[in-house]
């Protein structure tokens, strides 16, 4: 094969060489790879104990579970006489590579950034991980029937939020280096790759073209304006009639980032931890007096969708949904966020 038009920012790796590359990365970085556990694939610290699974779309959990772990220690406390010593966790100096995240999950990181980095004070634990993060994403060549990233303004090949995007072709992976951080992470392993040639890049383009969505993106501003008009719509009661009020949709959502904080331990010593909490739980907003501003199921169901499609947009933050479909897949009551979007999406935008 004659090599023409090779790219210095697109490298190829034989599929069989991937395990060795990952092992080499894991030796120097904090590497998370998607591997199956108990029927679902999730990002786990890389190891040989379980095989790599780049097929399950989407993985059971998103990048959220790495950047915003559940639970997470904020500090330990130890009482010493009357005084108390407070010790936050030690930072990790290594690069943090999350390998194989799809477009939806990579895009969701921007929404997490808005919450954890967009307030008057950044969240230290999140910031610490975010500054080390190198997101090695995977172009999504087999979207699931429950996926709807196109409608949420993205697509299977959307590389936003990624430092490197991998495109799987027949027997090779094409690594597109998108940021300096991505280059820095892979530069030490340059000799394992070859520069991608023109034919390869054409194949990538053809694969991408085959996955272009027929469905147009919603107009989020119009959607916000429409949703906003429906504060008193009886539709929320209809939805709530089946909703079980569990935390599946919020916990598996790559964007939902509400949390609570509690102490685990006793008066002498222990840890203050934060953990995922959900607007679907009555206790989320129930006050010590017993008053609950979102005391019924319709109010809670509405809060979830208002947050995603109204409050986020109103506040200039990324939309609260990236179209990964996890809530569609797992909701026991069959509540499908796509139906809600369709209901409120003004005709003009479709």
């Amino acid at each position: 094969m004659t090599r023409t038009n090779t790219s210095d920012r697109s490298w190829t790796l034989p599929a069989g060489a991937l395990p060795d590359l990952l092992a080499a990365l894991a030796a120097t970085c904090e590497l998370w790879t998607p591997r199956p556990v108990g029927g679902g694939t999730r990002f786990l610290p890389h190891g040989e104990d379980r095989p790599l699974d780049l097929a399950q779309t989407p993985p059971a959990h998103s990048v959220k579970a790495v950047l915003f772990p559940n639970p997470e220690t904020l500090f330990t406390y130890r009482r010493n006489g009357n005084d108390v010593a407070l010790t936050p966790p030690e930072p990790d100096g290594r690069s943090l590579i999350v390998f194989g995240a799809r477009a939806c999950d990579a895009r969701a990181v921007a929404a997490l950034d808005a919450v954890f980095l967009g307030r008057s004070i950044p969240d230290p634990a999140y910031l610490e991980r975010r500054e080390r993060l190198c997101l090695v994403g995977l172009a999504c060549v087999s979207p699931a029937a429950t996926c709807f990233c196109h409608r949420m303004g993205s697509g299977p090949f959307d590389a936003s939020g990624m430092d490197v995007q991998i495109v799987p072709l027949d027997d090779i992976y094409v690594f597109h280096l998108l940021t300096k951080r991505g280059e820095a992470c892979l530069a030490p392993f340059r000799d394992r790759f070859e520069a991608a040639d023109g034919d390869t890049l054409k194949k990538v383009a053809a694969t991408k073209a085959g996955l272009e969505g027929a469905e147009p993106s919603v107009d989020f501003t119009a959607l916000k304006d429409a949703v906003k008009q429906h504060r008193d719509d009886p539709y929320w009661e209809t939805l709530a009639a089946a909703c079980l009020g569990c935390g599946i949709c919020t916990f598996l959502c790559p964007v939902c980032s509400c949390f609570s904080i509690t102490d685990t331990g006793n008066r002498r010593g222990g840890r203050r931890v934060r953990y995922w909490d959900a607007c679907m739980f009555p206790a989320f907003t129930k006050e010590a007096s017993g008053h609950n501003p979102r005391g019924d199921e319709p109010a809670r169901v509405k809060q979830r969708f208002f947050h995603k499609f109204y409050y986020s947009i109103e506040n200039g933050e990324p939309p609260g949904c990236v179209g990964c479909g996890r809530c569609v897949i797992h909701c026991p009551a069959g509540i499908d966020i796509r139906e809600i979007v369709s209901r409120f999406q003004p005709e003009a935008a479709s």
Binding site: D123, C258, D277, T285, Q303, Y311, N315
Partner: peptide, 16 residues
Amino acid sequence: KMKCGVGMCGRCNLGP
């Protein structure tokens, strides 16, 4: 009800 106090934990919103 509040936990974080800085607009992250998500529970004390009045609309947006």
